[in-house]
Design a protein around this nucleic acid. Structure first.
Lengths: 329, 329
DNA sequence: TTGTAGGCGTTATCAG
DNA sequence: CTGATAACGCCTACAA
């Protein structure tokens, strides 16, 4: 069943059928109705591949995400997909994992599908070395590349990111002001975003005259985070700030297991304002980095880029602190 | 940059280039090497649309999922995508929400992209009426339709599902045997799966000679679930079993707020063995319905169907009970 | 308002 | 082993 079949049944040329399909106004109401009736009756759907071949676009964007089951990333995936669809685009999802080699391979895989753009969801996609990021710049020669919560200097690469440094700085200040004397910072793995968070934390610590060496990488499961705190290099810590809510939940579990009162004996704060922050009892103080806004912005920027409009290479927005039960403010 | 450019540079015909691209063995090693060198040097990638047009497939499957940010569904999405990719397929994700009208619209949208198959993730896609399911049967006339944790009788429709009834039955038995006299069951919304779970719960209750009317629909947030229990129609309940871990976390919050000891005063059990079950303190007893297995099975069945092999319309597998801190067994 | 014909970039069938 | 050529199904000037 193709456009020829329809044109025959309707007694018109394929050009007319095509015009009807694409809502051209250069078709008389009568023929339009007739053609539509035939299409309806036949249950005809135009072949997407043929259409894409001519138009050189299938209205598709590649979405790379290290782990779509991560509470935070999953939310981003959800919002992005929704926004994209509202703009007529479909998302091709690729869960890459955290290894650079895989990220590169899956990015190429998506490029081979002729996607119209690439979304890299999460700061895991920015490497610390120039060579590590080369593949992104290369991809950007073919399609616009959007970094969600990351930034990278390069033609056709667009970064939208939350000011994690400032948010963490302010959060740390509040925790210190509320009485903490020996805070520590936990992050899951090194990334563009966690580096910014550590920087904000350290800045606040320095300003308060505290000693350094308080930021630690720590495995991500609740139990591992808890175990880490049991042998924390800074033995007398009285506040745990974390780069994501999961680690903070680990800290809560640590406190509950050691009969430390939350927040009197130990202040805890997470990041992301994810489901985990309210799942915890007491509920976590956390930072809302506004994923929904991030995603909406990214998609709207993409639409502008596709319309050949000028778009800033880097957009920054600020986060909000959400005080709840695990801090003294 | 297309296949003609490459053929010219390599001094061969496009047929030869195509053969090289597709790994045909009817090419001499010398020409193959020459062509590959040109391809490499030019950074050439074949056009996916043209290729798909000829082959009538882009090796793509449509993935419908009510909410990709749901902890359970997100995990399914992640596993499915991984399995699909390992088999050379790419996932087009569509987050439909829970309204039938939207589910239908997004399914058609995917069909219009000429996907090779459809995966409907979660039992939300089976309606209780015949007319409600008609769109699935219609879609199945074009491509194979896979129901993940659901089943429906129809040509080209394949259901893979967990025996939720039996798992819930056994779980309820254990809770009763451990001392509960007045259990209640909470589910978030009516679905194929929640119906099976309620049935298992009710069967165990009946066998224990308990009165009926113990299954309740309940809004899904932690706070709402907790609030529901505060005015539960069954006032003297001493066990809360839930159709998902989120509701069970609500029950834990209820217990903590009312100084009921877990599990001595109140037994609680969730479902899905999701992140929420270990995020909770105490950790939730729950049911592991083995999403990973579900997804792997679904993809492997798809591959069989695509190879024209005979595949059972319905595959069932069993779940595992995971005893943790919120029950007395 | 409608129809004709060429092009999009592959794959695959035949000849050679 | 290699090359010419006809599909694949749609869009869109250009003509009528």
């Amino acid at each position: 069943m193709n456009i020829y079949d329809i044109s025959k049944k309707a007694g018109v040329s394929i050009a007319t059928v095509s015009r009807v399909l694409n809502g051209s106004d250069k078709v008389s109401a009568a023929t339009r109705a007739r053609v539509l009736a035939v299409i309806e009756q036949a249950g005809y759907m135009p072949n997407a591949f043929a259409r894409s071949l001519g138009l050189n676009s299938m209205q598709t964007v590649g979405m790379l995400c290290a782990d779509a089951s991560d509470v935070y990333l999953a939310q981003a995936v959800q919002y992005l997909e929704r926004e994209l669809r509202e703009n007529g685009y479909t998302a091709m999802l690729c869960c890459t994992g955290y290894a650079l080699k895989d990220k590169q391979a899956y990015l190429e895989l998506l490029l081979r599908r002729n996607v119209d753009a690439l979304f890299l969801v999460g700061s895991q996609f920015i490497e610390s070395t120039k060579e590590g990021n080369a593949y992104l710049l290369q991809a950007a020669q073919k399609v616009p590349v959007f970094l969600l919560n990351g930034s990278l200097n390069g033609e056709n690469v667009y970064g939208i990111l939350c000011d994690d440094e400032q948010a963490t700085y302010e959060l740390t200040q509040k925790v210190l002001k509320a009485g903490a004397c020996s805070p520590v910072y936990l992050y899951r793995y090194f990334s563009d975003s966690s580096a910014r968070k550590c920087a904000g934390f350290s800045r606040a610590c320095e300003e308060a005259g505290l000693s350094g060496g308080r930021c630690f990488a720590c495995p991500g499961s609740f139990d591992e985070a808890r175990a880490f705190l049991e042998q924390c290099p800074v033995a007398d810590f009285d506040a745990v700030l974390a780069a994501d809510d999961g680690l903070a939940v680990g800290a809560v579990k640590y406190a509950l297991a050691h009969e430390k009162r939350l927040p009197e004996d130990l202040q805890v704060a997470g990041y992301n304002n994810s489901l985990l922050s309210t799942c915890s009892t007491p509920e976590l103080t956390t930072v809302d980095n506004r994923v929904e806004f991030l995603c909406a912005t990214a998609v709207s920027l993409l639409m502008q880029v596709l319309q050949q409009k000028d778009v800033p290479q880097k957009s920054t927005y600020s986060a909000t602190i959400v005080p709840r039960g695990t801090t003294l403010f």
